[in-house]
Design a protein around this nucleic acid. Structure first.
Length: 435
RNA sequence: GUGGGUGUAGCUCAGUUGGUUAGAGCACCAGGUUGUGGUCCUGGGAGUCGGGGGUUCGAAUCCCCUCACUCACCCCA
């Protein structure tokens, strides 16, 4: 056979029913966790005007400079749209456009859905991937930062990654602090560029903060005495950071203070954090987030403090698979839905119409997972199919049953059969499947 | 964008120093006598060996190109 004529675009994949078992687990756990903290779902479009991203994420960010899926507008010359590479900018735009700043400024929202980045695919990274994110608008309280971090942790715990989660926390300061820090870093790094790696020299032009998380050993040593953001913090930012740590402690969350952690997007202010699962080694980061007090005003709204995070399903799914979590029993519910509850078997060709009619009655009565054979299989093969689909019950109708207006109901687990009146089949099945 | 690895049945793979009709396991389908699953047995369908070109009497096997996938770097979820 020749290869398929069409393939899914590079970096994308098809989610087949059996793959959706884990995807739905991730998604429904996300919804349940968000609900526990009273975050409500929001669904902005998958595309936004390109300039929303160049404006909010920063022209020099990698995402904007080389990873956007952009399409032209057919109507407006010069306007382009971009498939969302992340969720926060679009949600912030929707928050403003929906009029929330004036009528109900405090909002706790979450979203689950696909994001797109034009990158070279590799392990744990795709061009289309799903993110679960939360955004809380309208409060600068450090307790809200703590709640968001706590929610992120709770999510991973509910997924089965409990026990060894690590929260790494840092602050980027407010705008003024950040400027001071940037200048200090530039002044410190400039004279040592010759001794640093090529990537660092490139980063120096693009984003000085990024030199801090270089992995090259020589660079790391040079980083050890780099000016800390803490020295550049004004009293308010310093107090905020301390209050976030304290609030997290009140929730029983201890954090790792990581002054070298910086995030790639321009909109972060003050709190930034990542949740890691150290047993995963190099790829231990499960989610990232932080506070973005300037973003809402950046996209046209009034100055509005906000904080949030986003977790990628790809990395999380990988983590779960590598660790053999969660317990398979917890996925059983999703897997069961792929199979049948009731399978109807027709003995002879002339019984098929009656079986088909019964299927209609059962579905109309609200019984779920009702299926039957459509491929003219032998009765034996029909039973085999029922077994493969995990049917709890099989209803058999043959010439004998039809002539006497009866049907046989077989319990596939015990193997016991009972002969019931044809009119009693629906109530009987409802009764058995009820508990 | 830069580098490495891999491409043989639906899936996981084998295929000896290039030698006749390319194999296994799983999966799938059908049987193992009259209307019944899970085990077992038998049989079956299915691959232009990623694609193209070259070397050779002969290529899945050697060479070149190309595509795809994959891993790493950059960056990130």
């Amino acid at each position: 056979m020749a290869g398929p004529a069409f393939r899914a675009p590079r970096g994308t994949r098809d989610w087949f029913p059996e793959d959706l078992v884990i995807a739905r687990f991730l998604e429904e756990t996300a919804r349940a966790t968000a609900r526990a903290y009273r975050y409500a779902e929001v669904r902005p479009p998958l595309l936004e005007e390109t300039r929303l991203y160049t404006r909010s994420l920063g022209e020099t960010s990698d995402v904007v400079s080389k990873e956007m899926f952009t399409v032209p507008s057919r109507a407006d010359e010069g306007v382009t749209y971009t498939f969302r590479p992340e969720g926060t900018a679009g949600v912030a735009r929707a928050y403003v456009e929906g009029g929330y700043p004036a009528r109900a400024p405090f909002q706790k929202w979450y979203y689950v859905g696909p994001m797109f980045r034009y990158e070279r695919p590799q392990k744990g990274r795709e061009r289309q991937f799903t993110q679960f994110g939360v955004e809380a608008f309208g409060s600068a309280s450090p307790r809200l930062d703590a709640e968001v971090v706590d929610l992120a942790c709770a999510y991973f715990e509910r997924l089965g990654l409990e026990g060894e989660l690590q929260v790494r926390l840092n602050t980027m300061g407010d705008s003024a602090d950040r400027e001071r820090w940037r200048d200090a870093l530039a002044a410190y790094f400039a004279p040592q560029l010759a001794r640093r790696c090529e990537d660092c020299r490139a980063r120096f032009q693009r984003n000085v903060f990024r030199l801090l998380d270089c992995k090259v050993e020589a660079c790391r040593q040079l980083n050890a005495s780099a000016p800390s953001v803490r020295a550049a913090l004004g009293p308010e930012s310093a107090a905020h950071f301390a209050a976030v740590v304290a609030a997290l402690q009140r929730l029983g969350r201890s954090v790792v203070d990581d002054p070298a952690m910086v995030r790639g997007l321009d909109y972060y202010t003050r709190t930034v954090f990542e949740v890691h699962f150290p047993p995963l080694g190099a790829r231990s980061a499960l989610c990232g987030g932080g506070r973005y007090d300037n973003l809402v005003s950046e996209v046209g709204g009034p100055v509005t403090p906000a904080v949030g995070f986003a977790a990628g399903f790809t990395a999380t799914e990988l983590a779960l698979a590598e660790l053999g979590r969660p317990d398979p029993a917890r996925l059983e519910r999703f897997r069961t839905e792929l199979g049948a509850n009731v399978y109807l078997v027709a003995i002879g060709t002339e019984d098929r119409d009656e079986v088909f009619r019964l299927a209609g009655e059962l579905r109309a009565a609200g019984v779920s997972g009702v299926d039957l054979d459509y491929r003219d299989k032998s009765s034996k093969a029909q039973f085999k199919e029922a077994d493969r689909l995990g049917a709890r019950l099989v209803v058999v109708i043959g010439p004998e049953e039809r002539s006497r207006n009866r049907a046989v109901v077989r319990d596939m687990q015990s193997g016991t059969e009972e002969n019931v009146a044809r009119t009693g089949v629906v109530p009987r099945l409802q009764e058995v499947l009820q508990p």
